[in-house]
Write a protein that binds this DNA or RNA. Structure first.
Lengths: 168, 168
DNA sequence: TTTTATTTTCAATTTATTTTGAAAGTTCAG
DNA sequence: CTGAACTTTCAAAATAAATTGAAAATAAAA
């Protein structure tokens, strides 16, 4: 398989996977392109390689930067901005976990905390079911929160090394 | 807070969280409604409570069943079908992990396996970067696969009990 | 079998999301 | 300053996804 072909395949599939995870297809594609680009590249490079508009590139790059997955690079003596992705895939995974936790899990736990206090007959079947379900989801969420925290703090070799043995 | 109010809040927020995870809002809402309904309910109940069409309910229920999160229940002597959600939230989480693994992680690993074999100069910077990145992502994916398998096979008390200590 | 209740399907519509592109904004060399 | 190079913004257009609703299919009752 030729490199250009493989790259193309990787970028377009990465975009498709992204959408399944609630991530904008183009954002995932830009990220994929940056992951396989050894050197920083410009907005124009991205526009050309993915055949998308300048505005689109700009917005999605901004988004990737807000996830700390991509950084803006100013080369001395160059007018244009360059962009480069974090290449350590463990750091990428960690960063995504951290962000999704903050953006999704935390708000969810906050919501559940607000649904605690139900007026009325605690012996009523519907009420009991509701209170129990909220409590269960909260417990699950809190445990997930703790596990993810440990994963984030763990050393890079978490996924590649010894931690798996703990599960066995 | 009144029960009806809390339920409404839960259902609508659950829908919003779902969309962030690439899940159809209505599907998430139907699931939430079923989670807090102690007894099985009909398509008409769902239509009414969520103000959505019959076709919409039917399609999303079918989808929830394909995830094994909801089951169809035929009550003896009743013409209508009833639906009920798995209430054990650990089983729900396990089932979702299992399905997403099958639907997303497995295909991703398959793709990466196909991008292995690149023609041409292995010393070329672009080629080296590409091969290395694919290998790294594959390694991460495989480790995630194993960890998730252990989680799925673990007892229900994984999240609620002792497993967390292993991380400390 | 025929009728009636219920479920399923899917083309058309509506709604939501993404993308474009040109204008406005910014930065910096001269 | 001035103007060219480059970046950002955002309303409008294009695309994608979800929803409707009524017709077709199915299943049970009469």
């Amino acid at each position: 398989m030729k490199l250009s072909e493989a790259k193309q395949q990787f970028i377009s599939s990465w975009g498709a996977f992204g959408t399944q995870w609630g991530i904008n297809r183009t954002m995932a594609q830009i990220h994929a392109l940056l992951l396989v680009s050894p050197d920083p590249i410009t907005q124009d490079d991205i526009m050309e390689q993915l055949s998308i508009s300048r505005g689109n590139v700009n917005m999605n790059i901004r988004d990737l930067i807000s996830w700390s997955l991509v950084e803006r690079i100013i080369l001395p003596g160059e007018r244009k901005e360059y962009f480069s992705a974090e290449k350590d895939i463990w750091k990428v995974a960690t960063q995504i976990i951290k962000e999704r936790k903050k953006r999704e899990l935390d708000p969810m736990l906050k919501l559940l905390g607000q649904l605690d206090n139900i007026d009325g007959d605690k012996k009523d079947k519907e009420t009991k079911q509701f209170i129990g379900m909220i409590a269960d989801i909260k417990k699950l969420g809190n445990q997930a929160d703790k596990v993810l925290d440990v994963m984030i703090k763990a050393e890079e070799n978490w996924f590649t090394g010894s931690v798996l043995k703990m599960f066995k």
